[in-house]
Amino acid sequence: MPHTEIVTGVLLDEVALDLDELAQACSVDALWIVERIEAGLLCEVTQPQRFSSAELLRARRLLAIERDFDANPELAALVVDLIEEVGRLKARLRKAGIDEK
């Protein structure tokens, strides 16, 4: 029976990403990230040192909306805000045992 190597990773929120790692994970230049941080579109603080799972997911969503719809960053952020809010409401429904569909 072939030996199966088990790959062990790290949980992102225990070891958060720095700016360059976040940029690499999104396949963008660090400047793209910095511009959205400075505009308050990516996270609440304006000078974050590290980035968690939530910021990685938000950055990738921003990028997809900007790219797919040629949206400006503010509009993309508004769409992502709404997506996140829908996600929170769906989570509350699930927690209450209500089928979201």
């Binding site: 088990i6 790959v7 062990t8 790290v10 949980l11 997911l57």
Partner: peptide
């Protein structure tokens, strides 16, 4: 195929980072 060790305590929406994969 990749066999990944799911870390105990992982939460919904969290990311597991696998270096070099």
């Amino acid at each position: 195929n990749l066999t990944v060790q799911i870390p105990k305590g992982v939460k919904e929406g969290q990311h597991i980072r696998l270096a070099g994969q």
